[in-house]
């Protein structure tokens, strides 16, 4: 029994090809049609992966996927009949892990799911690294700004400013970045 929970969204609920494939590979699944309650449903059942089997993903659906990606990202596989480049771009923008046109090769579904999950994890780690780098850069900017404030108001050298900032941060048991924000906030009060 495969322990992954799958949310299967299909236009045609009578089409059981994909559903049977999932059954064959031992996935647990819930099948539904796309509706305005999609995000609420996802939040409620917390699937490990979502598979769409549609003709064309609507704008609303793609918007929902973007929202889902911001709030609680999970791997998404999309089988679609639409090979329009705009649709594909929007799906990629919504960080769909796999977009497959005009094919539901049910004997490949297990591999497709595994690849999608691996791709999703890789994308997530890239996103996290990017976020970390952004935060470090922002911290750096704040620290430089705080140092400049101390240099200007206290006639410190750059070294003195840095050491003062560091000591203030250590005394408060907070990061240098957070202390820099405090210095900037304090300086703003007197502007």
């Amino acid at each position: 029994m495969n322990m992954l929970n799958v949310l299967l969204i299909e236009n045609d609920l009578d089409n059981t090809l994909l559903e049977n494939s999932l059954k064959d590979y031992g996935f647990r699944y819930l099948k539904s049609k796309y509706s305005p309650a999609f995000l609420a449903l996802t939040k409620e059942i917390t699937p490990d992966i979502i598979i769409f089997n549609l003709d064309t993903p609507s704008k609303k659906l793609l918007t929902d996927l973007q929202t889902l990606n911001q709030q609680s990202p999970i791997p998404v596989i999309m089988f679609a009949g639409d090979s329009n480049i705009d649709t594909i771009n929007q799906a990629i923008k919504a960080e769909v892990s796999a977009f497959i046109v005009d094919s539901v090769e049910h004997n490949r579904i297990n591999s497709i799911i595994n690849v999608a999950i691996a791709r999703f994890k890789h994308q997530q780690s890239l996103n996290n690294a990017l976020e970390e780098a952004r935060a470090k850069l922002e911290d750096r900017k704040q620290i430089d700004r705080a140092k400049a404030i101390l240099i200007k108001t206290q006639n410190f050298t750059e070294d003195d400013a840095y050491h003062t900032l560091r000591k203030l941060a250590m005394d408060r048991n907070i990061t240098l970045g957070e202390m820099a924000k405090n210095v900037i906030a304090m300086s703003e009060l007197f502007k």
Partner: peptide, 30 residues
């Protein structure tokens, strides 16, 4: 941190306190 900022001198019209001095009006900042 506050003590560091309390060593600064304020010129009339410069910054929040300088504005209070210039205008005689109370101010709120932040």
């Amino acid at each position: 941190l506050a003590e560091i900022f309390e060593t600064i001198t304020v010129n009339k019209g410069v910054g929040a306190l300088g504005r209070v001095w210039l205008t005689g009006m109370p101010v709120i900042t932040g």
